[in-house]
Design a binder for these strands. Structure first.
Length: 211
DNA sequence: TCCATGATGGTCT
DNA sequence: GACCATCATGGAA
């Protein structure tokens, strides 16, 4: 049994929290059974100085969790049909979060396939933030959940430590603002990393897939 | 394997 | 009323 991540480990700046989350395992209890996913791709969003962050224009009912303590889920609804899940970072009053973009299913593969029957390959099960959230069964009701609480329906397990040489960074996916910030982090070699897509209005670097 | 496209609703200007 | 931290699908290559 691996240890849960602590709130203190996440109460740091968003880029540090992002790297720290790589290789960690998200576990969720779903109606079909428990699903565990090893995180291989994340993105950092921060405060009022990051125009791409939901917290950029200040606190609203929607983004309130980002301003709260670290180690909590910030789940939001996007494009009229999908949910995306973040883990909050930084301390109370300082808005920050790390978007969980992709992961590899550790267990249970059978449960995962039942939950996401449309996945063409196993690597697609949690490839992309909305797919990952869908696989873990995350929705509005999970907004604000403490992922460092053993009693929580969604938890974050630490490590094992990843080889720092495998950590890659690049521009965030699908964001127009601040596309020059290399605040996307992923583990090199994973086939579950989502394809890069420039945000609307960002400089279009055709076929911009990283290797 | 790649790419274009439609679906769909909350949030903030 | 525009803009989204997107995905499944189907047809082309």
């Amino acid at each position: 049994m691996t240890d849960l991540l602590s709130r203190e480990e996440l109460a740091v700046d968003v880029t540090e929290a992002a790297v720290r989350l790589l290789g960690c395992t998200a576990v969720a209890d779903t109606p079909e059974g428990a699903v565990a996913v090893r995180l291989v791709e994340v993105e950092a969003y921060r405060g009022r100085d990051d125009p791409a962050s939901h917290s950029y224009r200040g606190r609203t009912p929607r983004n309130a969790v980002m301003f709260g303590p670290a180690g909590h889920l910030y789940v939001y609804f996007v494009y009229g049909m999908h949910f995306c899940a973040n883990v909050t970072a930084l301390d109370d009053g300082d808005a920050g979060a790390v978007l969980l973009r992709a992961g590899e299913v550790v267990s249970d593969l059978g449960v995962a396939r039942v939950r996401r029957p449309t996945a063409r390959r196993d690597d697609d099960l949690a490839r992309g933030p909305a797919r990952l959230a869908s696989l873990l069964g995350l929705g509005r009701e999970h907004n604000g959940v403490d992922v460092t609480d053993p009693a929580s329906p969604v938890r974050l397990l630490a490590g094992p430590p990843v080889d720092p040489a495998l950590v890659r960074t690049g521009p965030r996916v699908g964001v127009a603002a601040a596309h020059e910030l290399p605040w996307r982090f992923w583990l090199d070699g994973s086939t579950a990393v989502s394809p890069y897509r420039p945000g609307r209005g960002a400089a279009v670097t055709r076929s911009g897939r990283e290797k």
